[in-house]
Computed example of a mutant assay.
Amino acid sequence: MNHPNSSYIIRTSIHDIDRDQWTMFVNTHPQGNFFHTPDYVDLYQDIKGYKSYVVSAYNSNLQMVGILVAIRQTVYNGLLGYLTSRAIVVGGPLIDAQHPDVAELLLKSYCKKIRHRAVYTQFRNQFDMSPFQQAFQQVSARFEEHLNILIDLTNSEETLWKEVYPQRRNKIRQALKQQVEVRELKTDQEREESWKILRAVYEREKLPLAKKTVFEKAFKILVPKGMLKIYGAFYQQQLIGTRYLFAYKTQIFDWYAGSYQKFYSVRPNDLLPWEIFLRCKDEGFTTFDFGGAGNPNIPYGVRDYKIRYGGTLVNFGRYEIAHNNAIFALMQNAFRFWQKLR
């Protein structure tokens, strides 16, 4: 549809988007990443508890100039499902550099589409969103600082090793001395076992884990395309740790990771990232994205773990848009209460 007072055309149905045009736009955009692609949307399509929302923008020649991809997550059915629903936009809206003014229109169209379907939307920025700050302000988005760590895989192995903190290097050496081996998981049996590791870790830490059907679909549609890599750490021929990574263009994105607690002494969690850096570097990838490092003003153990591999600490932040302010405030208070109970 044409938006009033605009030369742009906005489409809010995924069925109205040409898949090839969408793929080309993301692939050729310097900041296009896996989370903007149709393949990412396919991962959650037709899986209970998830729904994709895609809003695209076109100029008068029907050339795509912007796209926004959101995944809504719900845990329950009916009214309770809505009251606990949220949408996640990883990577932020992707806007053509020649059409920065379309950002506001894209965000407003998205908010109109989602406002009765999710309590709030969180934008997990993976690049600098400051050019679109005013557009986010126009939809009452709240900005929060949020860090990430990027590893430059174009550096030499020697430089990468020097950036690793001395204590972490010692732990990597310990793992190698214990003959822990890292390799990519190729069989269905190995992938099934790796999922069991994640389930054990996330249940122990009382953290939400994507449904098993999401992983099964990822194995089926992403692994053959080379867009999902799963690595495992083996000790005495037993899989004891794993790491899931999205791969797109020259970028690697950390997704899920975990190891069996009883094998922590042989350091699988220390060895896995390092070995993955080297393998991905050899395959021509240039950046390893550690997938978030928390609010800089709040102590965060995960950040402490990741930063010991070196890399560059960036602060692209996050935006949150409350589509229902009263319920959003109630959700935040309930979450804080739950955290205190843990």
Rank of each mutant, 00 (worst) to 15 (best):
G32L: 04
Q21W: 00
Y44N: 04
Q45N: 13
T23P: 00
W22A: 05
W22E: 03
Q63N: 15
D46K: 12
L43A: 02
S52M: 03
N61L: 13
L62Y: 15
L43D: 06
F35E: 03
I47F: 04
V55S: 11
T23R: 13
N61I: 11
D42E: 12
H36W: 09
D46R: 07
D20G: 06
D42K: 07
Y53F: 15
K48A: 11
Y53E: 12
T23A: 12
Q31M: 11
W22M: 10
S52G: 13
K51Q: 13
M64Q: 13
F35K: 00
Y50E: 06
K48R: 09
V54H: 02
F34W: 01
G32E: 03
T37N: 06
G49Y: 06
T37V: 08
Y44H: 14
Q31N: 15
M24D: 13
H29Q: 10
L68P: 02
M24C: 12
N27K: 12
P38G: 06
N33V: 10
K48S: 11
V55E: 07
P30S: 13
G66I: 05
W22H: 12
H36I: 08
G32Q: 03
S52W: 01
L62Q: 15
S52V: 09
P38K: 12
F35R: 00
N27T: 12
H36Y: 05
K51C: 05
D42P: 00
L68N: 07
N33F: 02
Q31Y: 10
D20M: 13
H36A: 07
Y53D: 11
F34H: 01
Y58K: 10
F35I: 04
L43F: 06
V26H: 05
V26N: 03
Y40N: 06
D42T: 00
Q31I: 01
K51L: 03
V65R: 07
H29F: 11
T28I: 05
G66W: 00
H36P: 06
I47E: 03
V41Q: 04
T37K: 03
I47Y: 03
N59K: 11
F25Y: 14
N61P: 00
S52T: 13
V55I: 15
P38T: 13
G49I: 07
V69Q: 00
Y44K: 04
G49V: 03
